[in-house]
Design a protein around this nucleic acid. Structure first.
Length: 493
RNA sequence: CGGGGUGUAGCGUAGCCCGGUAUCGCGCCACAUUUGGGAUGUGGAGGUCGUAGGUUCGAAUCCUGCCACCCCGACCA
């Protein structure tokens, strides 16, 4: 039992915030809305980065880095883009400080005003497309497949650790193509990469879909997304992939000589996932005892806790523990041996449960005598006694890790199925939303007006038009107008 | 940015209404006994009471501004 971690059923938000802090993932910083990502939390992010980066490279992308600052004029070149981001931009107006004459400290030097203000990037489309103009002349320069790992700033009204912070870390892919078809294929491909990552590594089942015009990225012609369901029944947009059409190419005059000898604007995409995925990971699997991490993303997959009285016992146990560690590491399993004498075993058990370590091995004199190990699973909180002779330890643990990865996915998947409800009337819609929440699969007439009205009345939005949407005729739950298929509604983070 | 709430030691808090220099628990340090689910005892350290002003002989307490955090709206990955 974790000491005083709030219960999910009592106060989900409080549970989330406390968990993030107590599991040493992140904490608030002195700057409003910004967070310090602590070493344990950052290790998880690094694991995510490593897998995503590998997947991006396997699909032909390379990394580059563009500047943090964007000239103000760039932002206004694409009309809907500036409209979407203008209200949440941090602006640099001066480049120097000086000592106040009254000795009260340091002040902004009014002499050092910038001629053109700089925007701290909320996203990098503009600065990247202004650069692409110089990189692209011919169809031979295409496709251009670039990703960058960066921080961005969006001055949000309300922030929450990982889910919405003023500054966040992310990756943004920006590609340029000769044809719309190719760009669209890229957009779809990257959504699939995200979905695969979420499901295989985060053990997070997602719905792949298309955003409605209302929810689309500012400057995109089409936005694809992956949507996940959290334990409190709210949806979380976990990643987006945008088909930009020729919007940014036109705004930044990016033309290329076609194979046929013509001149055309290039077609673009952009796609990103952020540290918000950390929030999704935490909320999807964790319980009232703390974090539950999927083995594929855990900073260490196994922790060995020695149980001993006195130096001699510890020495004997450590010999066996080192042997186990060597075996596990040889099999590619990450393991930590916590032989600190400063904390007691019970304390360590609780601590590693809070931190979500998938497997804990207890090793004491009784085990040495009986040739056993105590193996405890974080996801089910069950313990078993393992005989050394039963099978090689690396094989045992390897199998168990796979099983855990699979089971937490399955648990989240079952949860999503149970919490996806088909509704067929406005009354039913409102009732299910209030009593059960989750995804509501319902007919919609396809108009923004209806979507807005529903949002206004219930706070629920259309999370996506699922890619696997079944074509069936029905009538809109709100307007009664004809509809060709169901879309997913939910309250969202 | 609007409404509500909170801010006192690393963390959680009492004290505030009714002004007199801060309570308790956890944690921390030392020693001893302990170690298979967050040990026990004894001793000890640690506080510009979020911050800047104001009122007062005197402010954690009363007043004002600011900052941060939480909840509810509007905004959003």
């Amino acid at each position: 039992m974790s000491k005083g971690l709030p219960k999910r059923s009592e106060d989900y938000s409080l549970w989330y915030n406390e968990l993030v802090k107590r599991a040493d993932l992140a904490e608030n910083s002195p700057v409003r809305g910004c967070m310090v990502i602590k070493p344990y939390g950052y290790s998880i992010w690094e694991k995510m980065q490593a897998e995503l980066d590998r997947m991006f490279k396997e699909t032909g992308h390379t990394n580059a880095y563009f500047p943090l600052f964007i000239p103000k004029s760039f932002l206004s070149k694409e009309a809907s883009h500036v409209e979407g981001f203008a209200k949440e931009c941090a602006v640099v107006t001066h480049y120097r400080l000086k000592n106040a004459e009254d000795g009260s400290g340091v002040i902004v030097d009014p002499e050092a005003k910038l001629e053109e203000e700089l925007i701290v990037r909320p996203t990098s489309e503009t600065v990247i497309w202004s650069t692409y103009k110089n990189w692209i002349q011919s169809y031979r320069d295409l496709p251009l497949l670039v990703n960058q790992w960066a921080n961005v700033v969006r001055w949000e009204m309300r922030t929450r650790l990982f889910l919405r912070t003023t500054e966040f870390l992310w990756q943004e892919g920006h590609t340029a193509h000769a044809t719309a078809k190719e760009a669209m294929a890229e957009t779809v491909q990257m959504m699939n990469v995200y979905a695969q990552f979420a499901e295989e590594y985060m053990a997070l089942p997602v719905v792949k879909g298309k955003k409605t015009a209302n929810e689309r990225f500012a400057g995109a012609d089409e936005t694809l997304c992956i949507e996940a369901l959290m334990q409190d029944g709210k949806a979380l947009q976990a990643g987006t992939s945008h088909f930009l059409g020729q919007n940014f190419a036109k705004a930044f005059e990016v033309k290329f000589a076609t194979k046929e000898g013509g001149l055309d604007y290039v077609w673009g995409t952009s796609w990103g996932v952020s540290t918000r995925l950390m929030g999704a990971l935490i909320m999807a699997h964790s319980d009232d005892n703390g974090l539950v991490l999927p083995p594929k993303l855990a900073p260490f997959q196994v922790v060995i806790v020695p149980i001993y009285r006195g130096e001699e016992e510890l020495t004997l146990i450590s010999v066996k523990a080192n042997e186990i560690m060597a075996d596990l590491r040889k099999a590619g399993i990450s393991v930590k041996y916590d032989d600190r004498d400063t904390q007691k075993p019970g304390w360590k058990f609780a601590e590693y449960e809070l931190k979500g370590v998938p497997i804990r091995i207890g090793l004491g004199p009784r085990d040495l005598e009986n040739k056993t190990l105590e193996i405890a699973r974080r996801d089910t909180l069950t313990k078993e006694s393992f005989q050394w002779e039963e099978m090689p330890i690396a094989q045992k643990i390897g199998k168990l890790l796979e099983e855990i990865q699979e089971q937490i996915y399955q648990k989240a998947f079952d949860f999503r199925i149970e919490n996806t409800t088909e509704v067929n009337s406005w009354e039913e819609f409102k009732e299910v939303l209030e009593t059960k929440a989750g995804f509501l699969s319902a007919h919609w007439d396809g108009t923004s007006e209806t979507e807005e009205k529903i949002k206004e009345l219930t706070k629920a939005t259309i999370r996506c038009i699922p890619l696997d949407q079944v074509q069936e005729s029905g009538s809109c739950i709100f307007s009664g107008q004809p509809s060709v298929g169901r879309v997913l509604f939910a309250k969202a983070y």
